[in-house]
Computed example of a mutant assay.
Amino acid sequence: MIFDSAKNLDFYKNLGVEGRYAKAVDFLKNTDLENLAPGKYEIDGKNVFANVVEYTTIPWEEAKYETHRDYSDIQYVISGTETMTYAPIDELNIKVPYNEEKDVVFYDNENPGLKVVVKAGEYMIFNPWDGHKPKAAAGEPAPIKKVIVKIKEN
């Protein structure tokens, strides 16, 4: 798990395989994120793509821990504020088994985890071994827009 801000994106260009993080960073730095409509954006086929989402955050207790087997996430907040929570995968209890089509496992909320308030221009990187709980309100539920860049790790 990594928490950082937009000014440091270049530092992460050399992570991963086949320049995939570099493509993700270039997309985040060179795209007018504020004017992107919600939807899926192909960057490098199934290796790197982005999902732009808008929603109202929910109480922490209603958000769900998840992990992915094949993809890392860069969850970049475009506008608004969200609490994202991290917990090691081996400290979570599976609630909904792996869905291969969606590349996701869901867990129960027993682990309080490490909560991070993520503001516009900030992001968290979650790898397949990182349990993460997005969508939680930082205080009262509020609108948010973010982009989740998915990077294939295998």
Rank of each mutant, 00 (worst) to 15 (best):
A137C: 07
I94H: 03
K115V: 10
D44I: 05
D103A: 01
I43V: 10
I2S: 03
I2G: 01
H132C: 07
V52R: 11
E100T: 11
K13W: 04
T56I: 13
P88G: 08
G80H: 07
S5C: 14
A37N: 12
A138P: 00
D26R: 02
E140F: 10
G113P: 05
D4W: 00
A138F: 00
F3E: 13
Y86A: 07
S79D: 12
E42G: 08
I89M: 12
D70C: 07
E110Y: 14
K145F: 01
G80S: 10
D73V: 01
V105G: 03
E100I: 12
A63S: 15
G45A: 03
I144Q: 00
P134W: 00
I74R: 06
N51T: 12
M124E: 09
S79I: 06
T56Q: 15
F11I: 15
T67I: 11
K95E: 15
Y41H: 09
E100F: 00
D4Q: 11
E82S: 09
P134F: 01
P38L: 04
V25P: 01
K146W: 04
K115H: 10
G45P: 07
T81I: 14
E34I: 15
P97R: 09
E110P: 01
K119E: 15
K133W: 02
D26M: 04
G39E: 10
V48D: 00
P38D: 11
V53K: 15
V25T: 06
